[in-house]
């Protein structure tokens, strides 16, 4: 359980066949934010930050691209609205036209109470599914879950990981960079 000591040593690193990368812990969100800006400026590409809650400004510090999520939602909501109107038209005005209360077979206003909730239903289900697919979830395991220290990422731990596959990754130099940015602890995370 006591994995709190640094385990950075050439021997330990060599014993692990191609590690996942480096995990660095920072004391607070402010330090994480400054570190993120510096790591981005240092040219790293395959890295990420971890925190127990969303940190304001972190996406800008990391220069994250705006997600395409709203477009998926728009597509879903539009499909829902169109599908509802199309089904209503097909059923009541085309396939089996019936006169209800002397009203025309087809009327847009009377079909809004069905089109409106279906727009929302399709939009919300798309949001839900697109969120998890774009976030790379669900998944049963991840190399970071090997780290006992990382369990604090959902309580009070602020972490940066730099993956070993990053072109700029170099065990010694990257460790030094993370230390210089104020990391309290740096450890190698093994891969599955």
């Amino acid at each position: 359980m006591a994995m709190t000591q640094n385990i950075i040593s050439p021997v330990a690193g060599a014993a692990e066949p191609t590690p996942y990368g480096l995990l660095a812990e920072f004391p607070d969100p402010q330090a994480l934010l400054r570190a993120a800006a510096a790591i981005r400026q240092a040219g790293y590409r395959r890295w990420d930050c971890y925190s127990p809650f969303p940190i304001h400004g972190l996406d800008r510090a990391m220069r994250l691209k705006r997600s395409g999520l709203p477009w998926f939602v728009f597509g879903g909501a539009f499909t829902g609205c169109f599908a509802a109107l199309a089904v209503a038209w097909f059923c009541n005005a085309y396939s089996y036209p019936l006169i209800f209360s002397g009203k025309p077979y087809w009327g847009l206003p009377a079909n809004i109470p069905v089109a409106f909730p279906l727009t929302i239903l399709f939009g919300a289900v798309t949001t839900f599914l697109a969120l998890w697919v774009l976030a790379g979830l669900p998944r049963l395991h991840h190399p970071l879950f090997f780290s006992a220290r990382f369990r604090r990422a959902t309580t009070d731990g602020f972490f940066v990981t730099i993956e070993a596959t990053d072109p700029c990754y170099d065990l010694a130099a990257t460790t030094q960079l993370l230390r210089r940015l104020g990391a309290q602890a740096v450890e190698v995370v093994k891969d599955c």
């Binding site: 993120a36 990420d48 930050c49 971890y50 925190s51 127990p52 809650f53 969303p54 940190i55 972190l58 996406d59 990391m62 994250l64 997600s67 999520l69 709203p70 939602v73 909501a77 409106f116 909730p117 929302i120 939009g123 919300a124 949001t127 839900f128 697109a130 969120l131 998890w132 774009l134 976030a135 790379g136 979830l137 669900p138 998944r139 049963l140 395991h141 991840h142 970071l144 990422a153 959902t154």
Partner: peptide, 28 residues
């Protein structure tokens, strides 16, 4: 928890999705 890790990329998406769901739920 679907393997949630709380990465910045996940939070970024998550916050957007939450706002979008809030807008949709407001209409409801």
């Amino acid at each position: 928890s679907l393997g949630w890790r709380g990465s910045a990329r996940q939070w970024h998406l998550y916050e957007r999705a939450n706002i979008i769901l809030a807008v949709l739920a407001t209409a409801l």
